[in-house]
């Protein structure tokens, strides 16, 4: 028993502390977080546009341009949500980026940003649609344009519905980016594999990596819960 524990300690020491290997994990961890953050930001950027197109498609008289945009948005969302992100990653890096000399990190952000945008679009559209239709009518009846009403009345109220779901999307994304090592981005999972290649012992590095994801997800979930309660409070007043 004691021997086994000692063995564990030894393995952990080699996987984490020896030759300052924890630095590799931390650098990898930072890469994972930065990648997820930029991907979510890109996702929100594209997602807002998609959401507005779909919202307009549902609620306005449709011109030919709007109809075409709506059609494109629907296909985009269906394709992105209907295919594995792993396949998307391979296509973007090896096919689309294959001929360019771009960094894998950029490809990673692009891939996960595009992937996330399809989900974010639905989150935002649902958030906008949850705002009572009377708010738009009240704004328009005062003479405000559609855009002005959207910007100063609908979106500020939709944000309350959107932010918590967006936080969840960020958390999901952090875990999903674990496959980005495939295209040679040194994220925390890849760092663990690299350590294992040196120590010839895969289990300890993987456990360490899993623990890092778990801790970050738990912390973010807690923060999100606190944030949601704050939002709910300002509703009650």
């Amino acid at each position: 028993m004691l021997e086994w524990l000692e063995g564990c300690g030894e393995a952990f020491y080699r996987a984490f502390l020896e030759s300052d290997r924890y630095l590799a994990y931390l650098r990898g961890f930072r890469t994972s977080m930065v990648l997820s953050l930029f991907a979510v930001l890109l996702g929100v950027g594209i997602g807002v546009i998609l959401a507005l197109i779909k919202y307009m498609g549902n609620h306005m008289r449709k011109g030919i341009i709007l109809r075409a945009l709506n059609w494109i948005a629907n296909i985009y969302i269906a394709v992105i949500r209907g295919t594995p992100v792993y396949v998307q990653l391979l296509i973007i890096y090896f096919i689309i980026f294959g001929k360019l000399d771009a960094s894998p990190m950029v490809a990673g952000v692009l891939c996960f940003g595009i992937n996330s945008s399809a989900y974010v679009a639905e989150i935002i559209r649902a958030g906008i649609e949850a705002v009572d239709a009377g708010q738009m009518e009240a704004g328009r009846s005062l003479g405000l344009s559609w855009g002005q009403t959207m910007a100063s009345i609908i979106l500020p109220q939709a944000v309350k519905n959107i932010l918590p779901a967006l936080g969840n999307e960020f958390i999901t994304l952090i875990k999903e980016t674990a496959i980005v090592g495939t295209i040679a981005v040194l994220d925390v999972t890849k760092a663990a594999q690299n350590v294992a290649a040196i120590t010839y012992d895969l289990l300890p590095p993987l456990l360490i990596t899993a623990a890092m994801y778990l801790i970050v997800v738990i912390i973010l979930t807690k923060l999100l819960g606190m944030f949601e309660r704050r939002l709910a409070q300002s509703d009650r007043r």
Binding site: G134, Q135, E137, A138, G139, L142, Q157
Partner: peptide, 16 residues
């Protein structure tokens, strides 16, 4: 519309 005020059954005040 600026010259035509409208009052709704459910008020539609801007809640935020």
């Amino acid at each position: 519309r600026q010259k035509m005020g409208m009052v709704f059954q459910h008020f539609n005040l801007f809640n935020h």
